[in-house]
């Protein structure tokens, strides 16, 4: 039979860490992050180096909080938005850990957790991470930072943040039990200023696949969180789900809307980027599962797979959404 749902019997989430920028610190989850940087530079002279430094600090925080040392880690899997994942590659340079670079756009956090869980199931100790930085992403995908332009309300604000997770078979309070790998699809949206609309259908399709094959329904979960649909994509996803007969209630949320206060912070439709779902899960949701506040949580990591060239060429945006199921032991 075709495998729709991947089941993990023995994968535990041992530790999480997240480091963010100033805007994220000012947001509703501000107090929960491990550390932040006031000017988003992390003491570096280029934005690319800043992102690398942020990734380094996140990994340091992860190891400091856990009982592990660099030499205990069997695999590090992670990525970011910069072309060819340079921020992550530079951050793990010379630390002697086998490394897999990942690119899943904003779905990288979920992609990393799925790949990490597969290796952890084999008995390895795996670190995963996903990072994005507003300034380096803006340079790459949009305009120079000082360029004066008006943002459309459907555009999203790239999160400056890095979240990392430590997975192994060593028992802890949080388990990763199931995952669904998303299928790439496009729904005809090509507007890079409306990525939420491009990703909304992918999120719902992955969720539907999971529910149909697992026999569960949406009320079995305390929280179903999409990665970074933003306000626009979130509303579209609900409408689209309704048209397929799936009613999503109050337990359906979006990390891109949780990380900022959309009313007071100038972030248009909300947060986006690899660091969005990664830092929200690492700093807020996973600790809440460990505390017992949440027992059964789904992460649907959404990714808009566009490149600077594909934006200029007006190509349709292929999207993907990976699902990860967290359970309190």
């Amino acid at each position: 039979m075709k495998t729709e749902i991947i089941k993990f019997d023995n994968v535990f989430l041992n530790q999480t860490a997240a480091v963010v920028g100033s805007k994220e610190k000012e947001g509703p989850l501000g107090d929960k992050f491990d550390s932040f940087c006031e000017d988003d530079r992390f003491g570096q002279d280029t934005w690319e180096k800043s992102e690398t430094e942020m990734v380094k600090r996140t990994l340091e925080a992860l190891l400091t909080k856990s009982d592990y040392d660099w030499k205990d880690i069997d695999l590090l899997a992670g990525g970011d938005l910069l072309d060819q994942c340079i921020a992550t590659s530079h951050a793990v340079n010379n630390n002697g850990i086998p490394y897999l670079g990942l690119y899943g756009a904003c779905s990288t956090a979920a992609e990393g957790l799925i790949i990490g869980s597969a290796f952890a199931e084999k008995g390895m100790v795996v670190g995963t991470l996903a990072s994005s930085h507003f300034c380096s992403a803006e340079r790459q995908f949009r305009f120079p930072l000082e360029y004066g332009s008006q943002r459309t309300p459907t555009a999203q604000n790239t999160v400056t943040g890095c979240g990392s997770f430590l997975l192994s078979q060593n028992k802890s309070l949080v388990r990763i039990t199931e995952a669904v790998i998303g299928k790439i699809q496009d729904n005809g949206i090509s507007d890079a200023n409306n990525m939420g609309a491009a990703m909304a259908t992918a999120a719902i399709d992955t969720l539907t696949r999971y529910l149909q094959n697992s026999g569960k329904n949406v009320n079995d979960f305390d929280l179903i969180a999409t990665g970074d649909l933003g306000h626009e994509g979130f509303e579209l996803a609900k409408e689209y789900a309704k048209s397929t007969g799936l009613i999503l209630g109050d337990n359906f949320m979006d990390c891109g809307m949780m990380i900022y206060d959309l009313n007071t912070q100038d972030v248009q439709a909300g947060g986006s980027g690899c660091g969005c779902s990664a830092s929200v899960f690492a700093a807020d949701i996973c600790p809440r599962i460990a505390d017992g506040e949440l027992k059964h949580v789904l992460l649907i990591g959404t990714g808009a797979l566009l490149s600077p060239k594909s934006i200029i060429q007006n190509k349709i945006i292929p999207s993907v959404a990976h699902l990860v199921c967290f359970e309190r032991c």
Binding site: T152, P153, N187, G188, D191, N194, A197, E232, E235, E239
Partner: peptide, 23 residues
Amino acid sequence: MNRKQYIEFAEGRAKRTSSLKNC
């Protein structure tokens, strides 16, 4: 919702900035 309907729906509800204020 088919592909064409979705594009129309998504583009239709995408808020544009208040043009009068901008002007």
